[in-house]
Simulated assay, not measured.
Amino acid sequence: MRSQYKNIARVVKPHGRKGEVLAQPLRGLPSVLTPGMRVALTPPALKRDRFCTVTSVTDTGDGDLVSFEGIDDLTAAEGITGCYVLANRDDFELDSLDAAYTDLMGREVVDERFGSLGTIVEIMSTPANDVWVVEGDRYGEVLIPVIEQVVLDLPDQGTISVHVMDGLIDMDK
């Protein structure tokens, strides 16, 4: 049975003194947060309700600047930093979110030094960042952290360019 709620974003940091936070969509997917959306913040805290309503969303290019009902000062915003934002599947267009996720699967990944690493076969979500599992003939399985220092170019279609950090490729293969 599919869960009624889906992780859609993670609160990265507070922004300003009025309770706004920077939230980034998970798995490099497009944002689906909208004003009026009822969401759950996890893990829950003792001093606030787990559920709240999104009051405003502004795309910053580096995530969304989000205001939640009841989070109205810097201390409250700091209290939800690191929380995941879960939304009811009925409150957003799941097809477009799943389509963006599946668009990454099977895409070729090329490193600037090592050439073609293979294709993305899985996307793992970790608390720090997502990780692409790339499989290819030359290097076998390579785990690519989805972070700014590694992912150089992520076009809507075609080959993804990366800079693999030292130690991530098993050169004995």
Rank of each mutant, 00 (worst) to 15 (best):
Q4A: 13
D130N: 04
G63K: 06
V11A: 00
L26K: 08
R17L: 13
E135K: 15
D49A: 11
K13S: 07
V66D: 03
I80A: 05
G16A: 03
V12G: 01
S161L: 15
E148G: 09
V109W: 00
V121D: 03
S67Y: 01
L46T: 01
E108V: 11
E122T: 14
G167S: 06
V109G: 00
A40K: 09
T42F: 06
E141V: 15
T58H: 13
E20V: 01
G158Y: 06
S67R: 12
F114T: 07
G19T: 05
R48L: 04
G136S: 12
A99M: 13
D72M: 08
F114S: 10
S67A: 13
V39N: 05
Y139G: 05
Q149K: 10
S3G: 15
T159I: 14
Q157S: 08
E20M: 07
T60P: 08
E69I: 03
E78D: 08
D95E: 08
G167M: 14
L22M: 08
T34P: 03
T58Y: 06
F51M: 12
G28L: 01
E112T: 14
V133D: 01
K173R: 14
V134C: 03
D90W: 15
L94D: 10
R113I: 09
R27I: 00
V164K: 01
G61N: 03
T75R: 13
D59P: 12
G82Q: 00
G118Q: 10
V121A: 14
F92Q: 03
R17W: 05
H163Q: 09
R107W: 12
T159W: 02
G106L: 10
K47P: 00
E122D: 15
T159C: 05
C83W: 01
D49H: 10
R107A: 05
I71K: 06
L152T: 04
G140L: 07
